[in-house]
Design a protein around this nucleic acid. Structure first.
Lengths: 167, 167
DNA sequence: CAGGTATGAATGAAAG
DNA sequence: CTTTCATTCATACCTG
């Protein structure tokens, strides 16, 4: 289980792109160094959904160890978080019965299960840049701020939930 | 970006759209035709945040190719736009440019103004509806200073409740 | 070579 | 508008 492939770390860093011929055409295959750093960020720093700003920085750092794009980082965190949550989802009600133990929750993998997320490190969040998304930044003139702006105004609930069905 | 090969594209183009095989999912699965049209609208006509009127019309048109609801169209545009922006965000550094470098809604429809979308005509179209579908131009519909009340007044129930009142 | 699993990528839906 | 969640597809890679 968990056949963590160890494709050497030659991929990009100092090795050659010998294998690149095959993989480059398709999806990104992270190197062990990249994975290590990503996990470090995830578990150590509590980074779970990095902002665009952080993604840029992370991908820039990881690029030292191999080809990588911003979206790779983005997806990695998305998936990692989602899968962790997904696995946990199984184990909710009733602790007695749970057959098909396909895979134990990686309790030891991260070790910090006790506290789950070691805080979000309240200090670092907005450290590097001060972008902070204030509503809509790119308000290019077709501003909606004045009138009935977004759809939220007309009852999102109605729109989606459709609780009411008047004609 | 969209190498997504939709394995089920016959959702309505070449057969009964009743059931595709295994579409018991709650989630809308657009057909290739629907996607093609949506992209056409997005890129050719610059439609990015269609108004309620437009949504209704678009969904009606797309319904020919498969089951679809207004909210699907709504979400599609929202997602498409958001993802395009987002992708750009972690790839480009937000250096310089603080002054409306924006993409105009691509009025380039000139010459390409085929009949694909019957109601997109730049002027207006006061048919029975009299909805006035602003196609391109930066004003995405709710720019009217006088009649800007469109949103708050339109019937959202139309989107979801639009079972088959049309035609 | 076939099968299974882990995981990158994509996107619909929705929350904020 | 922005961000996140959930689900699914596609594929790399391990295993027998």
């Amino acid at each position: 289980m968990e056949p963590q492939q160890q494709p050497n770390e030659e991929n990009g860093s100092s090795g050659k792109e010998g294998f690149v011929c095959r993989q480059s055409s398709t999806r990104w295959t992270p190197t062990t160094e990249q994975i290590r750093i990503l996990k470090e960020l995830y578990y150590n720093n509590g980074v779970r959904s990095p902002s665009a700003d952080q993604i840029q920085r992370i991908s820039a750092r990881l690029r030292q160890y191999g080809k990588i794009e911003g979206k790779n980082v983005f997806y990695w965190f998305q998936n990692h978080k989602a899968r962790e949550r997904q696995k946990k989802r199984f184990n909710t009600t009733t602790t007695t019965d749970h057959h098909v133990p396909m895979q134990r929750p990686n309790a030891a993998a991260n070790g910090n299960n006790s506290k789950l997320y070691p805080t979000i490190t309240p200090g670092y969040s907005s450290s590097s840049n001060g972008v902070l998304t204030v509503g809509q930044i790119g308000n290019y003139g077709y501003g909606s701020s004045s009138g009935g702006t977004s759809y939220v105004f007309f009852d999102k609930k109605r729109f989606i939930g459709e609780d009411d069905y008047d004609v």
